[in-house]
Design a protein around this nucleic acid. Structure first.
Lengths: 278, 278
DNA sequence: GTGGCGGTTTGACGCGGCGTCAAAGTCAAG
DNA sequence: CTTGACTTTGACGCCGCGTCAAACCGCCAC
């Protein structure tokens, strides 16, 4: 018979641990002195403790281990538990790997002394949304900004405020064309069939922004100057994450765009639909 | 301004989470109505929340994130934190991989319907111990058992009980010889220079069992019948763990071996020194 | 006004597996 | 008998919220 400290030393566990296992009836000492409360362990209890430790290392919880020790669980059930556990471990392995890649890419980013702003990429899911937008192809950014401003201002006036939600620009990058294929318009709070004619003989037509389950997003202030760096950041992120782009990029203006400095000072969320690369 | 529920929906977090971040001063709402206590968030707070979420995904704790948000931390310090985090993640990756291999080998074991007893392999470290033992080489198991019994009985009588600790058999398996190169003796509670002569003109000589940092161990009842299966189990375990054997195997008799059925009914701990395979 | 429903508040407990005190009692050696 | 090492119970801490509960608030329909 050993006192708790000796037994703890033999089994390389802490005394607190043994007391805890006693408390939850996982491993009770062979004898407990009723006078003093001292716990006395037999070396014969070592196999049980070792079994506990071995199963714990497999990732099973103490609640799961308890019935195993009492042989209240058939090998088939244990197999089932292990199958589940395996998939959990595989999942967490993938997550840890992704985490590791992200950490490394951030370290590399610091070493490059990049502007470290706006590297807060977050994945979220977005639901399908009714959309009222103008399709157009622009030669350059300048023309695009002009069109966006036109839609924001004129459309903002003509679409009822209760219906209008947020200004959204969708960039279709299917073909490696020089031109920017854009859809510029408003997400809507509820579906609507009405078209809206704005200045310059353009028409906003109703459609739908499809739902995206995994969308890599980044929020940025202002459209132009840092545009390149934040796109770069999200690209780096996607690469580090082992993902690939799975659709057209969106820019969502989170605040109503008002007046002349509106676009430059606006809070914009860049969204890239992504999926796990094959 | 959004109420907590709307903001939570936008950012894809729970309201409880936002309340918690408020509580720990990580993200306070833009305004809190002093009358009702209602929290009102501005969309301008989304970047901060996103930064929190992004850093959290890197594995940083909220306590670590807080100063980062206040720019109280230089990029160099952040880099240091990330380096540390990286090594932690690498470590946990290795552990998870080992866990996965162990789970899979146990599933395979169930599928083979092996006797599932005694697969509770536990790694521990053992300190160096003074040792009083007889070196001998035996032709077969029968002779070995005979020698062990001789040492146990006769040595047990002659070595003072306060000095004697446990019966230990060390199996040197350096050369692929047929013969068993054994050291049979007692671990001692303190160093001693005395030799002990036992029956059959054999002599127990003092030496030392070297310390082993990582020892794969398994506890078993009885020496003979299941010997093969438990050695198999520990071998499988070592393989699954990506380890290799790094020294001579030991059998430690955890209980004093008394009388005739002593060896067969004894509680024995098999020990294999291991190290990570290259 | 008023009833109702859905959102919000604070507050508390729970989780998992112990670590880490603190105060008081026990054991064995000198 | 003293001393110092060990043990007991009990409580709180951890980390990041989830999940109640009871009470309160806002907005819409009547």
């Amino acid at each position: 018979m050993f006192r708790i400290g000796e037994f703890a030393q033999i089994a390389q566990v802490s005394g607190r641990q043994l007391r805890f296992y006693d408390q939850i009836d996982l491993l009770r000492p062979a004898r407990t002195d009723p006078q003093t409360g001292y716990r006395y362990y037999s070396i014969r209890q070592l196999p049980r403790l070792n079994r506990i430790l071995a199963l714990k290392e497999l990732g099973l919880s103490l609640d799961q281990i308890a019935p195993l020790l009492e042989n209240e669980i058939s090998p088939v059930e244990l197999r089932g538990m292990l199958i589940i556990k395996r998939s959990q471990v595989e999942q967490s392995l993938r997550e840890e790997e992704a985490r590791l890649r992200h950490i490394e890419s951030r370290i590399a980013q610091i070493d490059r002394e990049d502007g470290m702003d706006g590297y807060d990429v977050v994945v979220k899911s977005v639901p399908a949304t009714p959309f009222l937008a103008l399709k157009c192809s622009c030669q350059d950014m300048e023309e695009a900004v002009h069109m966006i401003r036109a839609v924001a201002d004129d459309g903002g006036r003509q679409v009822r405020i209760a219906l209008r939600d947020k200004l959204v620009v969708v960039a279709r990058n299917d073909h490696e064309d020089e031109k920017l294929e854009l859809e510029i318009g408003f997400s809507l709070t509820r579906p609507s069939n009405a078209s809206v004619r704005i200045a310059g003989d353009h028409v906003l037509k109703p459609s739908e922004l499809p739902a995206v389950a995994t969308m890599a997003t980044i929020v940025r202030v202002g459209t132009d100057p840092t545009s390149h760096s934040s796109f770069g950041a999200i690209g780096t992120w996607i690469e580090a994450n082992g993902c690939e782009i799975a659709g057209s990029c969106r820019e969502v203006f989170l605040e109503p765009v008002v007046g002349s400095p509106g676009l430059a000072a606006a809070l914009v969320e860049i969204q890239f639909p992504v999926r796990k690369a094959a």
